[in-house]
Design a protein around this nucleic acid. Structure first.
Lengths: 241, 241
DNA sequence: AGTGATATCTTTACGATGTAAAGATCATAA
DNA sequence: TTATGATCTTTACATCGTAAAGATATCACT
């Protein structure tokens, strides 16, 4: 509902030069509010657009996350975002970078709150899945979207950082230090394995493909239960005496 | 190149009633070719559209797979597919069903060619990744697309069948029969684990996110090597005496 | 202070897409 | 043979991303 013809301004008069001044005075009361951190004249549109985009993503999902929808949400013209992000890929990539930072923080917090080193891996994995469940739109943007430019510095850096957190967790649960430069095949396999396991589980979960399994599992088996059982199984290979 | 304004028929005359007959005679020499299996008058458009869609998908990727592009590839008007598939979701879902059948066949073949039962799981996993590498567009359609209707009988059935193949492989490598109705928590975890591992690995691989790991692994480590090491690691938990 | 340069934002325009609706065409049943 | 209905084409429209030009406000510089 309320979806038809949002961009019809009712047969615009060919030219009306003074109308702009009045509109600006009425629409932008807080135009002079900021004075210290933002370098430009209008409001901090860059930030405002990213926040608007996050709202749109949570409300309407990945499919609803369009340049024009974000511009509407932020109350600016549909072409305004182009100037700040270049194109749709630019906006999505910056938003995904924000997501990766949130994501990395959540995993780091879980890692820090785990007491025993051997628990850190499990805690991180649970935080991984929990983040995706709490922010499915963002997770989809980060890992499913085809319009991300991973060569953008902000995105590349943020995703590398969250990856480093995962590597740390794997190292802790193996009781060994993992070099930043060189990995043994076993270490590489352990890292790839952990990441694949938790990422694959999350994707299947968000796509609803685990329902088939959960339905056949013992009465009362929840997603948490299944994940815990999986992780215990997977941890058995290194913790076995 | 050759990309601008494909659908401009050069200022069409308002009405030209006889033109159709000539065009049809010139364009459809094989119109009467089929006579046994297809119930309708024109060529077997349903099948032709699906084959055209597969070509477009392999050539231009998921982003290029549009209703109009498929219609162009098949040489029909842009609205023709609607009649056969309802909408884009319909076409994509039918094509994804074809993909799941190919996929299931590839895994079943790998399973059958493995001699020892304990090898079946590894063989299936390798076939899984190999299929995705050989048909990245199709795999993306099957597992990444947001416009699939999994309640469509053909798609639901095809994806369930390929899932059943996976379950069988897990059962074989555990040396036990897996019931179709009820699973123990351990069995459910083993199945979810295997699927998550191989699916996650494939997604990360197709997204280029494993490069970071491969670059730090010992010289000459290939995707195959890494996958094999992962599977050996993961198999250790049940094969350990 | 005034003025020109420049960054920000809006308007306008265009090609592409999905989809609906109506017209044309043809196979097949009656 | 004819009429009915399935198949395909035309036409139309809202939406999208993006480019280009116009309007507007900030900033640097004399």
């Amino acid at each position: 509902m309320a979806r038809l013809s949002k961009e019809n301004k009712a047969t615009r008069p060919v030219r009306a030069p003074t109308r702009r001044v009045a509109r600006v005075a009425a629409d932008r009361p807080a135009s002079r509010r900021r004075a210290n951190d933002t370098p430009y004249h209008h409001g901090d549109l860059h930030e405002a657009l990213l926040k608007a985009a996050e709202r749109v993503l949570e409300r309407d999902g990945l499919a609803g996350l369009t340049l024009r929808a974000v511009a509407r949400e932020a109350g600016v013209s549909h072409a305004a975002p182009t100037h700040h992000f270049g194109d749709l890929t630019g906006l999505l990539s910056e938003l995904a970078a924000i997501g990766f930072r949130q994501f990395g923080l959540a995993m780091a917090a879980a890692d820090a709150s785990a007491t025993a080193p051997s628990e850190k891996g499990v805690a991180s994995a649970k935080a991984y899945v929990a983040y995706a469940q709490a922010h499915p739109g963002m997770y989809g943007l980060m890992f499913r979207s085809e319009r991300l430019d991973h060569s953008r510095p902000s995105l590349h850096e943020a995703s590398e950082a969250s990856f480093a957190g995962l590597t740390r967790g794997v190292g802790a649960s193996r009781h060994e230090q993992i070099s930043k430069e060189q990995l043994t095949l076993d270490q590489a396999a352990a890292i790839a394995s952990a990441w694949s396991l938790v990422h694959g589980f999350t994707m299947l979960l968000l796509d609803g493909r685990l329902k088939t399994i959960l339905d056949r599992a013992p009465e009362g088996t929840s997603v948490e239960t299944l994940l815990t059982a999986m992780l215990r199984l997977s941890a058995g290979r290194s913790a076995r005496p």
